[in-house]
């Protein structure tokens, strides 16, 4: 494993020379290491490039990491990973992605992840995206996440892209059955001429289902962000979607939280706020001894943490 791969793995996963649980490391479209466990089996997909990951019913406290790295330009990696989580399992899935290019050629990773959560399953899904390297080569990460939650299943998705990715389109679609719960926390940072689009669509089909989607983003320089979040309530359900953005320089942010109520017992809320860092926040931190620049950095760091 070369230095670039190791550096990317440290940034996008909990790798510290090794993984604690089951794992599959994908580097430039090929498998660079794999370990299944007694309860988590990782298999090659037969119809497409990618993995089938089966987690046994009742598996508790285990984790599976499937980091993907693109370490040089002129790579366009496409992967399909399917996760089948058994009844009452309670696991953590880490699926980071890092793209690196120095040559001026583009590097892209497109991960299509599908999650099938059986009744009562609980999943914490952590997704970190970074781009590294010098040069003008475009670094792109275009993830697609689809999740199907059966009765009383819970998916907590923590997704972040903190720097270095020039172009991203992030598609997330979830369907919730009776009593299912979805929590999404997204953090995004764009700078220079980077471009990020996020589309969430959540359909609550079962009574007692709930979705809470919160996106925080910082857009600097000439970067552009577009956020669309659609919550569809087809049953007696609760939904909340929130987009909060800090904007600076010549950046542009479009935010469209949308609510579609298809049942009189659907209780749906949306919030969106876009603005620059408040002057009084900088002033407060300056009274604590920080310079203006240090204060801005702290505010952004806290906002995206």
């Amino acid at each position: 494993m070369d230095e670039i791969t190791e550096s990317l793995l440290r940034q996008i996963s909990d790798w510290d020379g090794k993984f604690k649980g089951a794992y599959n490391i994908r580097v430039d479209g090929t498998c660079a290491g794999r370990q299944s466990s007694e309860n988590i089996s990782i298999l090659n997909k037969e119809d497409n490039p990618g993995l089938e990951i089966h987690i046994r019913p009742g598996t508790k406290g285990e984790s599976v990491s499937i980091p993907a790295c693109v370490t040089h330009g002129n790579v366009d990696d496409l992967v399909y990973n399917d996760f089948y989580i058994g009844q009452q399992a309670d696991v953590t899935i880490v699926a980071g992605c890092g793209v690196h290019t120095e040559t001026g050629e583009p590097a892209r990773h497109n991960g299509i992840h599908r999650f099938f959560l059986s009744e009562g399953a609980r999943v914490k899904y952590v997704e970190k995206h970074v781009g590294t390297g010098k040069g003008t080569g475009i670094r792109s990460i275009d993830p697609v996440t689809e999740a199907f939650l059966e009765k009383d299943a819970t998916l907590e998705m923590d997704t972040s892209q903190i720097g270095g990715v020039d172009h991203t389109v992030r598609e997330t679609r979830c369907t919730l059955s009776e009593g299912a719960k979805l929590v999404i926390r997204e953090r995004l940072l764009t700078e220079k001429k980077q471009n990020a689009k996020t589309n969430f669509t959540v359909t609550m089909q079962g009574d007692g289902s709930a979705a809470d989607i919160v996106s925080r983003s910082v857009a600097k320089d000439e970067s552009r962000q577009e956020y669309v979040s659609v919550i569809i309530g087809e049953a007696a359900c609760t939904g909340h979607t929130e987009c909060d953005a800090i904007i600076s320089g010549k950046a542009q942010v479009d935010a469209s939280p949308r609510l579609y109520a298809r049942n009189e017992d659907a209780a749906l809320i949306h919030e969106a706020a876009i603005g620059k860092i408040a002057g009084e926040q900088i002033l407060k931190l300056r009274t604590l001894g920080l310079t203006e620049q240090e204060a801005e950095e702290k505010i952004v760091e806290g906002f995206l943490s």
């Binding site: 925080r216 408040a278 009084e280 926040q281 407060k284 009274t287 806290g302 906002f303």
Partner: peptide
Amino acid sequence: AFAFQQPVRFKGL
């Protein structure tokens, strides 16, 4: 040191 009359709120910090 200075304590503000209306303390400042921060999202995230």
